[in-house]
Write a protein that binds this DNA or RNA. Sequence first.
DNA 1: ATTTCTACCT
Length: 624
Amino acid sequence: MRRATSILNHAPTFCSVSAHSLVDEFTKFCYQRDLPRAMKAMEAMHRNRLSADAITYSELIKCCLVRGAVQQARLVHEHVFSNGYEPKTFLINTLINMYVKFGLLDEARNLFDEMPDRNVVSWTTMISAYSNSNLNHKALDFLILMLREGVRPNMYTYSSVLRACDGLLNLRQLHGSILKVGLESDVFVRSALIDTYSKLGEQHDALNVFNEMITGDLVVWNSIIGGFAQNSDGDETLHLYKRMKRADFVADQSTLTSVLRACTGLALLELGRQVHVHVLKYDQDLILNNALLDMYCKCGSLEDANLLFTRMMTEKDVISWSTMIAGLAQNGFSADALKLFEAMKSKGPKPNYITILGVLFACSHAGLVNDGWYYFQSMKEHFGIDPGREHYGCIIDLLGRAGKLDEAVKLIHEMNHEPDAVTWRILLGACRVHKNVDLAIYAAKEILKLDPADAGTYILLSNIYANSQKWEDVAEVRRKMRTRGVKKDPGCSWIEVSKQVHAFILGDNSHPRIEEIKRELSQLIQRLMRLGYVPDTNFVLQDLEGEQMEDSLQYHSEKLAIVFGLMSLPNQKTIHIRKNLRICGDCHIFAKLVSQLENRVIVIRDPIRYHHFRGGVCSCGDYW
DNA sequence: ATTTCTACCT
């Protein structure tokens, strides 16, 4: 302790006020949250070897916390320990908590180590301090030490320590102890359990814990809804949201953020717009508004995104800017993305790792080789950020698309990160654009080493071999697929029409209007062919909808979805479609021609890319 | 003394 050098001890000793009224006055100032006067009174009390009760000191500590007054807080600490008094456990706990809140974990720890009677609150405060600082190991160690000292954890302890749990084994053990002492029905413990299972991707267990709930609590609902949203299960997220509303709970910021994330994942623009209405009453919530911004970007409505971005009620943070920059780039507005980045540099927050990723993404998708290189080379110098694997990915993409395949390969081998499946897929994409079969085979094999369940890559490889009559290799690839149990999902496209989601799956005729749609599609293809459309049946180097037959080409799911959109949406309305697989070359040409012939804007989002078709051209510049 | 929500290369 710094008692020896305390300012308190050097203060002039002079006081004319009676002891009783001095303490009274101190108490009054503490409860009035008048920090300067309370501090003065405390000094006077110290000179007269007087002290107040623990509750009063804890009021003063609260006051220091609210004002961020660290120096004053330290003086209170010294005063409480001065004059030979040994403060009560309650007051030491308050001091420990104070240091934790100020982020001074070492000082909290010193107090904790020196206190004589550590109770459950002391232990829990330290555990929650460690888990909040991501010192997970320390938090779990403390739980063990606590048990060894014979202090029994309560619901506060468990809900704190659960956050620190980053392994399934630990979690199951903790869950077991919680059940044993009967604390699983506490809403804090329950939501922490749900959240922790969700963070480990164990949605099944999370849902079990949730379903055992008898009387509800909004946070528990938010935990399960957020868990599914974070695990990219949009359908289940929305399903639970409906259940929550049926149970008469009113969504708050957290719920709406998760629901928006589900809309983002499923590309449900109409539903997202409905949610926007509920967001309006939380226009000060930055997280929620960022989620809304991302939803508009990822659902392909840049008009809405731009509008929201310029009109946001709160100060925009680095996430708002990064979201908008990446959103513009992903949707093909690379020039606007770079312009926004320049604006950010002059009047926005400091760009971070992810911001730069969006910038490089914009360059690679617009073929801006020089700009991309410049930003890549200077990111360390200008923003202090070392290029990560993702940044290298963008540059490999940039080189590859520009036809510099050799340089792309060279960079893969030179970078100081291990290439992953994504890295090789980027190279494969470049091979597709530039029709380099040999390099494509190499890249495909590397992908399968790292991701042996990637059905699309097997099929692509098999098609390459088939095209060059290498039947033995074809058989080998097929055999590997069989033995590894890899199956390709059929192509599927989704479109939202009057709040209903319509799914079109290759080879599935269950849509009620399928016959009508197919008739319309045939007629449309006839008309396009008269304008020069030739179905592209070259499947080599294409990611395909399924086990491909030429005659099923005309019924690719996105074609059905486009026709259904033409049939059922008003004339001016943009047709928004989401696909589970990459769009094939034939459907890409088809969509371009339809956008011209029918004078419609069509937006198709595939798993990784956006295509805005307008007047016969696509925002991707045929470069995907 | 404790629980829930936002951006990321294919």
